[in-house]
Design a protein around this nucleic acid. Structure first.
Lengths: 126, 126
DNA sequence: ATATTGTATATAATATATATATACAATATT
DNA sequence: AATATTGTATATATATATTATATACAATAT
């Protein structure tokens, strides 16, 4: 599966896993119905406990990215990535709307908010 | 001062204090320059430690609602535009942080989020 | 001088987050 | 039926954050 886990990252392992698998699905590199490595295999590969991979897979299932079946394994769900992305975009839209509302109602400029966004992205992609 | 503290509330005591005092100030029942009860008096009245009232007063001061002076006491601050702006910036920061988190965890690019922000500002400033 | 005000330090109790080991249960394979 | 594979449940460990406290200290007012 070739996921990269950093122990020095401030992000928890299960989150590093979900983030990367989400990206694989959204980008189409993992396709509908396709099998994910079993929790145990992935755990072994990443030198991590099964509980951690389970936690990651549970999160992915709750968010509709995959489906898990006892004895069979985990598979990319048929819910299309486009729908999920649209949903996420909507969540972001609402947050940004609130931010802009506050900005406009208190004399904070576009430049200031835009700079904050830039900074935030730089910080978090490291 | 007549604040109501609930021990069964899921909200911490210091937060119950700040919320109620903020409301008193915003509603004008506590006016600029007016003295708040000393941390010790309030602590005694609420049967709570001084550290807890201090925590509440510190939060209120950081948010620009009151001003505290050693030996004198705590007073309702004059509404300070700079402080309010800083507070608003913080609120915006938190919203944008959430937005960026969602974006990064679902393969949404900086360009997309940035475009949304641009759009939002254009729409709302027209 | 003393009482009042806020502050600093060290500490404790609790809750939450993260990760694990191990034993259990369901399904597939032989 | 036996065995290997898959996921699941329970109990636990560790670290960190949150909430609250006691007590000793410092600044100001009277």
């Amino acid at each position: 599966m070739n996921l990269k886990i950093s122990n020095t990252s401030n992000k928890p392992i299960y989150e590093q896993i979900t983030t990367q698998i989400k990206n694989l699905i959204v980008s189409g590199r993992l396709k509908e119905g396709e099998a994910l490595p079993s929790m145990r295999l992935l755990a072994k590969e990443l030198r991590v406990s099964v509980i951690t991979t389970k936690r990651a897979y549970e999160d992915l299932e709750r968010e509709g990215f995959i489906q898990t079946l006892v004895g069979k394994g985990s598979f990319v769900a048929k819910t299309d990535a486009e729908k999920i992305k649209r949903q996420k975009l909507h969540e972001i839209d609402e947050l940004i709307y609130k931010a802009v509302e506050i900005a406009l109602s208190s004399g904070i400029s576009y430049a200031e908010v835009s700079a904050m966004l830039d900074e935030m992205f730089k910080e978090n992609t490291l």
